[in-house]
Write a protein that binds this DNA or RNA. Structure first.
Lengths: 78, 78
DNA sequence: TAACTATTTATCATATAAGATAACCACAAA
DNA sequence: TTTGTGGTTATCTTATATGATAAATAGTTA
């Protein structure tokens, strides 16, 4: 019995996975990126796991600290 | 004495302005887009005015109903 | 074994996005 | 004048994103 995910949950998983991939491509630990963005590693883990529906400002901070544009951060498939 | 806006506020204004422009380019009233997205026109007005820090899911609904990608929706300058 | 690093998960408080309603303004057009 | 359309603003409630701490897991290195 696998639970069917909502559109919102699928979106969260997709962007979380994308952010994790972008971060790992640059070999930056969660800890480091989180601290650059001024939040806790636990909260970045939550976001990458798709357990939150992040705001544009949170995403902007992540994009900035990965040195990519918001547009690139949004370049993923739902 | 004009108040200096925070990074967050500037971001909100920028995306709000961008969404408004995209909507007007398609000649869709706020009322209509809001109802397609299942929220009130007052809330879309608030968002376009830059008075809220929208979540990715809210932005996704807007992109979908403007028939553009999330990536395009994010193609604006801060 | 123990120590260290990276990550995950649970939990709690606080700030705020979203949902909703109502009243208002500006401008047509009837 | 009244009616209709498009938009704004204020306010309230509710849901939830975020901030923060702690503990647990897994892998690795000494």
């Amino acid at each position: 019995m696998s639970k069917k995910l909502s559109d919102k949950e699928l979106l969260q998983k997709a962007i979380g996975k994308h952010i994790k991939a972008l971060r790992e491509k640059q070999n930056i630990p969660q800890q480091a990126l989180a601290s650059l963005c001024d939040f806790e590693k636990s909260n970045l883990s939550r976001l990458e796991a798709g357990n939150t529906n992040p705001t544009i400002y949170t995403l902007k901070k992540i994009a900035d600290n990965l040195n990519i544009s918001l547009k690139e951060l949004m370049d993923f498939d739902v």
